[in-house]
């Protein structure tokens, strides 16, 4: 069966699939399902260990709800700009795509900056990673979330670079959509973390 067949430089579109859904998008949904178990385990550990500390500082002594509410609001707004970036890309609006991507990334950076400020503050309040259970569960859980946001920010700047060089045309809006899925997921996880750690103490 050695058949020499010419190989075509195929156009950049995905092969037809059994379900009609994009394979890349499906992979990403599966990845997010996996991420749910990852954050689920981290959050469950935080909840299991809540209230077991014999030494402080305790959550109500360090958590600054107004400040974190503000950074949570910033992160939520970044989901809006992400949606606008995708819409712009789907309409072939190059400047709009780049602009909204940059806005999303900047909002994400604001959130990460807020987290750095918060961590520093808590550290000087005596909350240590090596200290009590609240310390280690809090830092590791929110730290992993912050890492996710940081990876998202890098991803968004990568897309931004593509967009301003005109390499993110309408046909490639899936690239933006998948980054958006990730971004919205990280956002939703923060709603859960914010509610469970900050609001319900």
């Amino acid at each position: 069966m050695a058949v020499a067949a010419a190989v075509h430089p195929a156009p950049h579109e995905e092969h037809p699939t059994s379900t009609g859904l994009s394979s890349r998008k499906m992979l990403f949904w599966a990845f997010l399902g996996s991420e749910c178990m990852f954050f689920g385990s981290l959050i469950a550990t935080y909840l299991v260990y809540r209230g077991r500390d014999t030494v402080g500082p305790h959550p109500h002594e360090v958590l600054n709800i107004p400040f974190t509410s503000f950074s949570a609001f910033v992160l939520l707004m970044s989901s809006l700009t992400m949606v606008l970036a995708l819409a712009a890309c789907q309409h072939g609006d190059r400047r709009g795509t780049a602009g909204w991507l940059a806005a999303t990334a900047l909002l994400g950076m604001t959130f990460v900056g807020g987290q750095c400020y918060e961590f520093t503050h808590f550290f000087y309040d005596g909350l240590k990673l090596q200290g009590n259970l609240f310390g280690c569960t809090f830092y590791v859980l929110t730290g992993f979330h912050g890492t996710h946001v940081t990876i998202g920010v890098i991803w968004l700047w990568t897309l931004f670079t593509l967009a301003i060089r005109g390499k993110l045309p309408q046909e490639k809006s899936l690239d933006v959509e998948i980054a958006g899925l990730y971004w919205h997921f990280v956002d939703v996880v923060w709603i859960a973390i914010f509610t469970l750690i900050y609001l319900i103490q």
């Binding site: 550990t45 260990y49 990673l129 090596q130 200290g131 009590n132 259970l133 310390g135 590791v140």
Partner: peptide, 17 residues
């Protein structure tokens, strides 16, 4: 984290289980 950073996730003395 427990082994490299010195956290207390599995250290009974700190109340962990």
């Amino acid at each position: 984290f427990d082994r490299f950073v010195g956290t207390n996730f599995y250290v009974p003395a700190s109340g962990a289980d």
